[in-house]
Design a binder for these strands. Sequence first.
RNA 1: GGGGGCUUAGCUAUCUGGUGAAAGCACCCGACUCAUAAUCGGAGUCAGGCGGGUUCGAUUCCCGCAGCCCCCA
Length: 1077
Amino acid sequence: MTASPAPSDASAYKDTLNLLETPFNMRANAKVREPELQAFWAEQQIYEQLSREGLSPERPGPVFTLHDGPPYANGALHVGHALNKILKDIINKHALLSGKRARFVPGWDCHGLPIELKVLQGLSSSERAALTPVSLRQKAHAYALEQVELQKSGFRRWGIWADWDQPYLTLQKSYESAQIGVFGAMVLAGHIYRGLKPVHWSPSSRTALAEAELEYPDGHSSPSIYAAFPAVQLPEALATKLAAAGLNAEAATASGGLAVAIWTTTPWTLPANLAVSVNGRLDYSVCAVTCRGETPAPAASHLLVAAELRDSLETSLGLQLTPLLTVKGAELEGIVYRHPLLERTSPVVIGGDYITTEAGTGLVHTAPGHGVDDFNTGRKYNLPVLCPVDEAGNLTAEAGPFAGTNVLKDANPTIIAALEGTGLLLKQERYEHRYPYDWRTKKPTIFRATEQWFASVEGFRDQALAAIASVTWLPESGRNRIEAMVRDRGDWCISRQRTWGVPIPVFYHRETGEVLLNADTLAHIQTLIGEQGSDVWWQRDEADLLPPAYADQASQWRKGSDTMDVWFDSGSSWAGVLGGLRGGITPAGPAVGDGALTNPEHGAAAAAPPQATPLNFPADLYLEGSDQHRGWFQSSLLTSVAVNGHAPYKRVLTHGFALDEKGRKMSKSLGNVVDPAVLVEGGKNEKQEPPYGADVLRLWVSSVDYSADVPLGPGIVKQLADVYRKVRNTARYLLGNLHDFDPRPQTEGGNAIAIEDLPLLDRWMLQRTAALIDAVSADFERFEFYRFFQALQNFCVVDLSNFYLDIAKDRLYVSAANSFRRRSCQTVLSLVVERLAVLIAPVLCHMAEDIWQNLPYPVAEKSVFERGWPKTEADWKTTPLNLNQASLEDPEMQEIISSFLNCDQLDDEGPIGEIKGLRRLVNRQLEICRSKSIIGSSLEAHLHLDLSEGNVSQGLRQVLGLIKESTQLEVDNLKDWLLVSSLSLAFEGNANPAPDADANADTNADTNANADTNANADTKQLLIPPSTELGITIGIAKAAGQKCERCWHYETDIGDHAAHPTLCGRCVAVLAQNPPK
RNA sequence: GGGGGCUUAGCUAUCUGGUGAAAGCACCCGACUCAUAAUCGGAGUCAGGCGGGUUCGAUUCCCGCAGCCCCCA
């Protein structure tokens, strides 16, 4: 052995250490790096290849279809979009890594009122006047495409993988055509009908609205009135009872006699009143009216009210109500009353349980044209659907003297005034309640009976409920939610009086109004739209829209002007995208030139990329916010059940809403909005709003339990950025210590140590990694990504950084470059980093790829995503341990070995967990010394452990026995694991002070580290009083000898080597192998 | 107004009818200066939104209230 010359400067020994070396930066520089990585994926066609071939082209994996619910093509992306699309992407990327062909076709919902209004708002009044339906539609089309591109670029920046060049848009010809196909199939199945029905109507936008288009702002108040409707006729039985109670029929029905008291918050509906409804099961009282205080006498001597409400009505009406007779509501049927304002009479009828005693009088003013309950009740009694209100909300001639007034303006006061004039107004007051507003114009809506097209849910409700039962709902509560909705919902109004949408392809006879809608016309229009797009409906006249067979009668027909509810658009995506339409009416052929999406199963592959993976129908998964139980989940279900008889999806996963850190909704007024674009790319002031990158946004999505609402705010983002950096630094450390490592086995000329030759410590690390793989695999399978997030953090922080890597520093830096002690550790680092990269890839896709691209040795896969999901290696857990032969045969030791090998759960560390516990105790003592400035680094300490007391935990004693038996003491060495320079250990039954676990491991592998020769251990002076905890007595002494300049350990042989007077024997030996340059 | 959901340390998350439930991060203190805009160590914090009930005993079961969120009318 030849000693190398000593470096001139002592600190130059630093250069003889094997320190970190990697271009993988500590800081992500995400703003630049993430787009580079995305470009790499694009160039290498990683997504395209994996989604079409799976991991192996020879054996393509199963198709997995997560069908994208189309966001509305309007407005900037918000964190809700991020939550939704990133969740989908995490699932898809995990599927791709698992070998599935997860092709993701993104979609956009492009029709509808908001876009139409947006376009209209951008026009001057003269432009607006000159607008034709076709030109409006062209502008809306262009606007939607613009918005799609904006949103698309945002999604791509988040690292979402999808067929971005072949998305589906509900305005595409092929999509529209498929949608007509769905509509047609429903028509032919008898599920579509036309009828007069009260629907939510917005006078401000002159259209019917879907429930989804309504909002209920706070602070709405309506003018509520109590009114008396004079009875003019009584049923026989009631008249008899009344007479017995002292009120004869003649008096009751005379002017100023008995009246029924009603309450309404919509006085403007009074002209449409055709009945008063009562609840047959409630009690009602005929009461004599006496004036009280200043309240003027009403034009009725007796009032009929719900018995339960009599008290409260006395107060609110300011009248004394003396009950004469109380009867069930059912007995009131047959009363006829006179309309208080118009010349007609109407009946009292039995309504339903919607009539309660919570407010009002228990008798409900019923206008079948202006309320759903009213309509249903009216239908039972064959009442006409009277609707004296036009589309602008103006009362028509049918409203008699009130014609011309507007329901949102002067109709109420006018009618109230008229009522007051008759003496039949009992009371008026403002009433605050939630009231539906047009979501777009923010103006109140009304119920108004109009001619509409409906899908008769009644016709397939049972099938729909059966379909719901066959779907897996995650979380399970989603099932009850949608089931209740479908069970109770009424028919679906699918028509809209708007221009920007897919037309309802129907013709009306110009004279008779007869409807023309059959297989012929449907197929013809479907083909036309498939070729020309739905503009054709407005561009052509009837002669060119009707099938040839109707050519000679074209002039008799008028095309309809209604468009479809946008929920019907998106609800048809299973047909437009997944090709789920079978049977008579099918989607039209390929559309050219609009990026149309097609399905190979229907022979329409022209616009699709070559070898496009088919999509599954029903889809494997739908994943949207929980509000879509009423929206897309339901509209998709209803159309699919109506046409196919089954649901369009196998599983439905829902997520909550993104709220701020206090759990409140994000809003501009609260100033708590997190803009995902700012989070990713940084704000105007990058110091205040740094560019965190897409991975941090993605990490957020993974970190929260999305089955409930999820919080997000600046504080949370900062924490996530810290976690991101911790993971990144851990990966960087792994990469940086592999710069001279060849992962091939030593037998093939590489540096990797065989698993069966690894020391205990390394075997434990592999076990932990295996446990992580198992746990995280299950987390992804169950879509419980927050568990992955927690496990990842704990793995990086606790297992790696705090324990394994902390101990590894000495092995990696100090030991000779090619020593077993170092190569064994590198073997583990290499195995861990490659698996860690894959495990984080679904979530931290950019970091994972960055790690992969910075692996310092060649790997077979050009992208981390080609590696495939890691499997737990069996031999990481089961390979025999490297222990002395004698101990392997000892039955007691065999038990310990098996307890080591069998700890395969993440929360079960097995015997090594005991060491961590010991470390905590030791660290506590070291910290006491540190706080007294007695020592700094733990290497300045000599540790005296006395376990001879007897109540030391069995586990600790076992694991110490295990270490003692290791044949690789240069690694499995307690003093190294506890990061002290020397150690003496007294065991139970071992009166002699034990062994100072000694160094020189590199050169003296056969030294029994626990066989002490240092009889002075006991006499070393303790720096602080020894502490005893859990039976373990810990004493801290100053380590003997001097600090080695190179490895910083305190050793007694410093100065023994003339060439390196400041080094310990171990370092001298290392330098002999690796001479300094 | 009706239905559903949530409420555990500053943040995210876990757990449980019964001794101190509780991890990681953040914060505070300290060490190192060979992961250095890094790394290591130590310490503290709530008796689990509020009120009531069931029970020998509840954070965990039930009811009510409040706040927040979603859906419906």
